[in-house]
Amino acid sequence: MADLLRDFRILLRVAWLTELEHKANFFISVIGALAFNAGQLLFIGVLLNAFGSIAGWTPAEVMVLFGIRMASHSMYAFFFRRVIDVDLVVHTGEFDRYLLRPTSPFLQLLTRRFNLQQFGDVIVAAAILAVALPKASITWHPLLALWLVIAIGAGGMLEGALQLARGALAFRLQNTQSLTALIDTVFGTYGNFPLQIFGTLGSILFTVVLPLAFVGWIPAAIVTGRTDSLWFPTWLAWLSPAVGVAGMAAAIFFFTRQSRHYSSPGS
């Protein structure tokens, strides 16, 4: 583990130095990410403006949900965003060198670039939470705050896990990029809604099959005290961060297994 952390630091330095080579892009990247997230914010904002509340949740509660979703997305973007590059790395043969070095190929994938847009995501998420949390009526407790932080981290892991599992398909299938876009769209658009909107069946599907519930809905329900909207008992909701952690572990395992099918390009 200590070895892995040290390798992470070493690789992060190279990624950062690579990014500095193109530092002119820094601000434009951050602004780009801000604009992209602002688009999602406007989407929710306009909807709340036109319709008042959504599926029984007040605008403040929906904004808390949106803020938590953005925060866990920015955790994903910060640590795991490069998992979407698996196709590229496999098709260009860059993966060769990951396999030749004495450290985890997965770690080398995550650190192949240091994505500056991540800062845009973090800024937006922090701003939304700063505005939304005080507006919602929340009975704060230190443990609740700690739980929220863990849930946000686990949510980021879950989104990363799905994208990583998708990426791992690239070892065997030639192109699955549209699945990346699907996951991005579904998380980015529908993850912002209180999932009871999809009916009981829909919210079960979004918990069990496509685990959207863990990146916003469940944590927001716990924090705002709206656990009445969940289709399962509250005590289970408290345990929900375990899903993100387990999901990431399973995805890394799957990725490692699939990488055995890597057929390096070029003869």
């Binding site: 193109h22 002119a24 780009g32 990410a33 604009a35 992209f36 847009q117």
Partner: peptide, 9 residues
């Protein structure tokens, strides 16, 4: 060199 930023906007 990086077109992602402008394109995102």
């Amino acid at each position: 060199t990086d077109t992602r930023g402008p394109f995102y906007i």
